[in-house]
Amino acid sequence: MRILCYLLKRLAFSIPQIFGVALVAFFLLKLIPGDPAPMMLGPLATQEAVDKLRAEMGLDQPLPQQFIAYLDRLAHGDLGRSWQTTNPVLFDLWQRLPATLELVTLSLFMAIVIGLPLGMMAGRRPNGPMARLADSYCIAAGAIPDFWLALVLIFVFYSIFKIAPPPIGRLDFAVFPPPSITGSYVIDALLEGNYHSFRAALAQLILPVSTLGIIYTVPILTMTRTTVERLNETDFIRFANAKGLSPARVSRHALRNALPSVITVIGMLFGTLVGSVVLVEVVFAWGGAGQYAVSAVLNADINASLGFILMAAIVSLIVNLVVDLVTLILDPGTQN
């Protein structure tokens, strides 16, 4: 019941945020120089035709009314058409989103697998060898551009050692994609029971996931470490140490209490990654929402570009909502 109350309150808070996001998107749309009506009709259009189209598109209305009409279209899922693919933008994004989410989720998973234990160990002994390792890791990984690391990994593991598949997208040309159920090739292949395409899809994932995983470990590692360092000073950890609990036991207590802040960082990272994955998607020709956005931006496909940031903002809002709920369940004290 309490959780339900909180959820409702939290949802009420996200409504102005979604409104703000839509306002920014609308503002950006209006910021583009030039009148879209003559551009759509071409240079030979008569003035009447232009006026008629302007009236149809609502461009002759005052701005607040245009914004309301824009909100109405958004609410119906109408993000306009992309002139590149000639499809509705929502359809295009919906098709490409699973590829991006698959990459982001697996990368975050890898970042957690490296960052959480390393951060725990570094935090438990702030002057130990693990702490120094964590220091060096953060300094190095924090400075390397992700798209360049992707190239280095391709060079080492594909060009030199030939163990990784070429960077040609989500699946080798020779392998048929599995029937689309969830949109994630790995999961779909598993559901179909097709071991061959499962392996092929997984092999394509290794390099991009490693790239993002290596770089985005840093925030998780840092947050875990500082939280655990702070917990070392608390009474309950001192007490646990004093009564002679094994270090592993104490670490488990610390981890349980560090989780809420670590999960908050993971949620924020998910949002960031949906934007930053764009670069790595381009390197690996991933064909996800990020690559779609890049080609939209480069070809002045405004509906598609705005559709992408709207989607990215909404995905990160949803993730933040989920994270807040999980934190509440883990630590009921955060409610206020």
């Binding site: 960031t272 940031i309 903002a313 990160s316």
Partner: peptide, 24 residues
């Protein structure tokens, strides 16, 4: 503050990319 919230609701790279698209 609310305006800052809205800007931060967008992923950094995506927003920068689209801003460049809009501004030329």
């Amino acid at each position: 503050l609310r305006m800052a919230d809205v800007i931060q609701a967008f992923p950094v790279f995506a927003l920068a990319l689209v801003l460049v698209a809009v501004l030329g």
